[in-house]
């Protein structure tokens, strides 16, 4: 029998022992970042937030989605889960931002380099198929309990789609356009910024949308290691067998998901 588990354990222990300074630094940075985002949304009066979100949905995604957002958020407020929803929103938002900050460059890199692509792809497969619960363990070992390890697990789980779709989008830019750009003497940077990224934008935005959805689906799992928000409500509902409470939390997650999906889906499209 090969005792793979032991090796992984050793590896994780070795990481925690030798890179504790690094993890502490990351922990500190992420705590401040997520804490800041969370504090902002919780501090913001609910009617301002609702007005902002509904306005954005109305502007980018049309009247129907504007109303949907307005009613959805009012409903969440009426259920009495506004603060938890904002905590979840903050977690999703900051995880997504970090996942995009890592994922888009990785996607660009793997589109432009065969070697990078060959290394990145299996890692993405691994990240996507590994059951999300498994990430919780090293997350806790590295960062302790709380929102940061939740965000860490969320980032790992939510990053693959944006990497893949960025890479795909860039690879799908028609060869003759790339060739034309080169023929006019564009540097590789100009090619990327003026041609490849703008043309890949619909695909990249689809990746952003997917990343947000994946991040939302991690909410409950992340709350198992102490991330605050709607996940806590669901978890409480499960542990105390309070069906109503569990459903309320779940419903709030679904509404938030629908609203974010509608808004981000329409961001890239011109009106």
């Amino acid at each position: 029998m090969i005792d793979v588990g032991t090796y992984i354990e050793h590896f994780i222990n070795w990481l925690t022992a030798n890179f504790s300074g690094f993890f502490d630094g990351v922990n500190y940075g992420m705590t401040n970042f997520i804490g800041g985002v969370e504090a902002f949304w919780v501090w913001m009066p609910f009617y301002v937030t609702i007005a902002l979100m509904a306005g954005l949905a109305f502007w980018r995604a049309g009247i129907g989605n504007g109303f949907l957002t307005l009613l959805g958020l009012l409903f969440i407020y009426a259920m009495g889960y506004w603060d938890q929803t904002m905590q979840t929103f903050a977690l999703v938002l900051s995880s997504t931002v970090l996942a995009l900050a890592l994922g888009i460059p990785l996607g660009i890199w793997s589109a432009r380099s065969q070697t990078a692509n060959r290394i990145i792809r299996p890692i993405l497969d691994f990240m996507q198929t590994m059951p999300a619960f498994v990430y919780l363990i090293p997350a806790v070992l590295f960062f302790g309990l709380g929102t940061v390890p939740g965000a860490f697990a969320t980032i790992i789980f939510a990053m693959p789609p944006v990497v893949r779709l960025t890479s795909l989008g860039i690879q799908q830019v028609p060869e003759d356009i790339v060739e034309a750009t080169k023929a006019f003497g564009a540097t590789s940077r100009q090619l990327l910024l003026k041609v490849q990224v703008p043309l890949a934008m619909p695909s990249i935005l689809a990746g952003v949308n997917q990343t947000i959805m994946m991040a939302l689906s991690m909410v409950v799992i992340a709350s198992m290691i102490g991330a605050k928000g709607l996940g806590e409500i669901v978890l409480q509902g499960i542990s105390q067998l309070r069906i109503g409470m569990g459903f309320e939390g779940g419903l709030a997650v679904v509404l938030l998901a629908i609203i974010l999906d509608r808004i981000t889906q329409h961001l890239g499209k011109s009106k």
């Binding site: 028609p174 003759d176 356009i177 060739e179 034309a180 750009t181 023929a183 006019f184 041609v195 703008p198 043309l199």
Partner: peptide
């Protein structure tokens, strides 16, 4: 300067 069969425009 080059002109292409399928135009290669943005």
């Amino acid at each position: 300067a080059m002109v292409f069969q399928h135009f290669g425009l943005l």
